[in-house]
Design a protein around this nucleic acid. Structure first.
Lengths: 203, 203
DNA sequence: CCGCTAACCGACACATCTGTCGGCTAGGGT
DNA sequence: ACCCTAGCCGACAGATGTGTCGGTTAGCGG
C-alpha cells in the first residue's frame, strides 16, 4: 500500500501516527470485530507486533482512535459554527459544517457514527459517552429553536428531537457517500427544508 | 436459558423456528462478527452442530433471519398505514406504526437498522437491497408531501430527504430504548413537530 | 411392540487471531 | 568510528471459531 522498498525506520511518534491513521481506515471499513491487527499491520506496512510497541491491545487501539477522531470532529464543527446571524442561518451553517466534515473525513464519520452497535462493554461505554456529549452540544445549539416551537429544552422529548436531527443528518451523509455527485449546498437546502420549514408548509 | 430437563426432541420446523428466534436475539445484540454459532446454540439449548442440520453456514443463517424479519417489518407497517385522511394524518399514523414496531420487536429493529456497516460482501449486498426497497416504499408514501414543498419525487435530493426522515425516526427509536418511560404519543408528536411543522414555525 | 428415520451430539481437523518473548539492526548520540 | 538504544520482526503458545463426520437414540409409523 505504501512505498515499502526504502524500508527506513521511523521515530516512535511518526510510526504511531501511521498506525492510528491506518487503523482509522480499516476499523471504519470493517468494524471492530471484523478487523484483525494483522489487517491493520499489513495496511500500515509493518509487522503485526509493532502495533504492540505502541498499544497494549486491540481494544485500546480502537479507543485511542475513537477519542482522537471525536476530538477532531468537535474541533471541526466548533470552529465553523456561525456565532452570529439569525437562528435559521446558524442552523444552516451547522448543517453545512457537518456535511463538510463528512465529506472531508469520511472514515472518521464512519468510525464515529456507523458502528455504534459494537458489543465490547468498554467500547460501548466510551461510545455512549461520546454520543451523549454530542447530543448535549447539539442541544445547546438548538435550545432556542426548540423552545420556539413550544418545547422546553430540559424536557426529555427535546432530547429525542435532537436525536432525530442528528441521526437524520447522518443518514443524509451516508446517502451522500453513495451519491457523491450531489452538490453540498443542495443537500443543506433539502435538510433545511425538512427540519426548518417542515413537510407541512405550503409552497 | 430455556427449560432443559425435559430434553424432548422437536420436529424439524419447530427446532428451526427456535434457532432463528434465538439467532435474531443474539445477532441483534452482538452483531455478525461478534456472535459465534456456539453463542446461538447455547442460547437455543442445543449442540452447535444442530445448527448445521438447518443452515449450511453462519452467513446463510443471518441472511435467513434478516429476510424473515424484514418481511415481518414490511407486513407490520403496511397493515397499519391509514389509507385515508389528510396527508398529515397519514404521516402521523406511519410514524406511529414504526414506533410501535420498534417497541414490540426491538431485536428485529436492531438487526435491520443498527448493524448496517457489517463487512461481509454478500451480507452488505442483501442489506443494501433491503434498505433500497425500504427507501422506495417510504418515497411512495411521501411523494405527495415532498412535491408540496417544491421537490419532485424523482429528483435525487428527494431520496436524501427520505433518508433523513427514516434515519431520524430510527434515531428516536434508539433513544426510546434508552428512555422507555416516554409515552409513544409524545414521541409521535415530537417527530411530527419537527418533520411536519419544522423548527422555524412560530408558535 | 418393533424398526427405522430423523433429530441430536461429541470429537476432530483446520483456520485465524491475540498477545508474548527474545533477537536483530539501523542510525542517532558522543 | 563505535556504541547502544529504540525500532522492528519471526516464532511460539494459547484461545476461539467454523464446518465435517460418524455414532447414538427418541419416538413415530406400521
Amino acid at each position: 500500500m505504501g512505498a515499502n522498498p526504502p524500508k527506513s525506520r521511523m521515530r516512535g511518534p511518526a510510526r504511531k501516527a501511521v498506525i492510528t491513521a491506518t487503523a482509522l481506515k480499516v476499523f471504519a471499513e470493517k468494524g471492530y470485530h471484523g478487523t484483525s491487527l494483522g489487517d491493520i499491520a499489513t495496511a500500515a506496512g509493518v509487522a503485526r507486533t509493532v502495533l504492540y510497541d505502541h498499544f497494549p491491545s486491540k481494544r485500546v487501539l480502537l479507543l485511542a482512535v475513537m477519542q482522537e477522531e471525536n476530538a477532531s470532529l468537535v474541533e471541526y464543527i466548533g470552529s465553523r459554527i456561525a456565532g452570529s446571524g439569525s437562528p435559521e442561518e446558524r442552523m444552516r451553517s451547522t448543517i453545512d459544517a457537518y456535511f463538510s466534515f463528512a465529506q472531508s473525513r469520511p472514515d472518521a464519520r464512519k468510525l464515529l457514527f456507523d458502528h455504534f452497535a459494537e458489543d465490547d462493554p468498554e467500547i460501548r461505554t466510551v461510545r455512549q459517552g461520546i454520543r451523549e456529549s454530542r447530543t448535549q452540544a447539539a442541544m445547546a445549539l438548538l435550545a432556542g429553536d426548540i423552545r420556539s416551537v413550544g418545547v422546553e429544552p430540559h424536557e426529555p422529548i427535546a432530547e429525542a428531537m435532537v436525536e432525530l436531527i442528528i441521526n437524520g443528518l447522518d443518514g443524509v451523509a451516508q446517502w451522500w457517500e453513495r451519491h457523491p455527485d450531489m452538490p453540498k449546498p443542495m443537500l443543506v437546502e433539502g435538510a433545511m427544508r425538512l427540519l426548518w420549514s417542515g413537510l407541512g408548509s405550503q409552497r
